[in-house]
Simulated assay, not measured.
Amino acid sequence: MSNLPKLEGKATVVMTVNGSPITIEVDGTAAPVTAGNFVDLVNQGVYDGVAFHRVVREPQPFVVQGGDPQSKDPKVPMARLGTGGFIDPTTSQERYVPLEIQPEGSDMPVYSQTFDEAKIKAQPKLKHSRGAVAMARSRLPDSASSQFYFALADLPFLDGSYAVFGYVTEGMDVIDDIQQGDRIESAKVVSGLDNLKN
């Protein structure tokens, strides 16, 4: 993990979708590696032009997911999206971040295992409430790269299994209107970039 960016403190990211801003407070106090990865990718322009490839509102509101860099290419079919991650230009390898979830009452996150696997009974400090921003991953705990999702509702069954790293503070109405295929026009770090340590 020493080679991964970390966020020491908080940062604010403004994402523009369908011409409207979404403001995200990114929390490096409880998820320094996950938050650092996201802020670093925003700062590198990785999310500019990327599509939301997974939108689940039925049978009840669930998630809006994006962040697959393959989606910048309009020729890549939607069905193939959800498999790509950030390829680090310095190593030409995909960058993965470990599963990182801090239990309430603890000073340190738990890494590389879900709360069930670690036999932790506590709630996570950062919960899947409506507006939570978290990392998407495959079955393997340490498989998150660049894909993230917005929680459209409180999703307590995901707590302790997926890493929340921030919350939408403005623009949930914009997220509620996102359709599959909509793109992130731009994402900018508007404050807290000095808290990013590479």
Rank of each mutant, 00 (worst) to 15 (best):
M15I: 12
L7P: 02
F157G: 13
A118P: 04
A122Q: 15
A151E: 09
V97H: 06
E100N: 05
G82C: 02
L41G: 02
G28I: 06
G160P: 01
N198Y: 13
G85R: 00
G9F: 00
S129Q: 11
D177W: 04
P5C: 12
D107N: 13
V133A: 02
A79G: 13
S129G: 13
T91S: 13
T16F: 12
K188C: 09
P61M: 08
D40T: 08
G85V: 06
S186W: 08
E8H: 13
N43K: 05
M78S: 13
D176F: 03
V63A: 01
E8D: 15
V189L: 05
M108A: 14
L81Q: 12
T83S: 10
D142S: 09
F86T: 11
L4W: 12
R137K: 15
K119H: 15
A122F: 12
A151P: 01
V56F: 09
V164S: 01
M78E: 13
R130V: 07
S145R: 03
V164T: 08
N195S: 09
R57V: 11
F62P: 01
Q179I: 05
I87D: 03
A134P: 02
F157S: 14
G19F: 06
S138V: 06
V76R: 11
D107W: 08
D159P: 07
E58R: 08
M15E: 08
G160L: 04
Q70E: 15
M78G: 10
V14Y: 08
L196G: 01
G192C: 08
R137W: 06
G36R: 01
F165L: 06
D107A: 14
G49H: 10
R80H: 13
L140M: 14
A11D: 03
S138W: 10
K121S: 14
N37L: 04
A118L: 04
E58A: 12
K188G: 11
F62K: 13
M108L: 14
I178V: 15
A79N: 14
V42H: 01
N18T: 09
P98N: 11
H53C: 00
D73I: 01
E185P: 06
V76I: 14
G85D: 02
D182E: 04
Y47P: 00
A30G: 10
E94K: 14
V14L: 10
D176M: 08
A187W: 00
G19P: 02
D173C: 07
L99S: 06
P109R: 06
A144V: 10
D68I: 04
L158M: 14
T90R: 15
P21M: 07
A122M: 09
G66D: 05
R130Q: 07
M135D: 02
Q147T: 12
V63L: 00
E8K: 13
G49V: 01
Y162V: 09
T169E: 05
P89A: 09
A132P: 00
A30F: 06
G19W: 09
A118C: 07
L140A: 15
P61S: 11
M108V: 09
T114A: 08
A136D: 03
Q180V: 11
E94P: 03
D173V: 05
G9W: 03
V56W: 07
L7D: 00
S106G: 04
P89N: 13
P5T: 10
H128W: 00
E25Y: 04
L4E: 14
Q60M: 12
E117I: 03
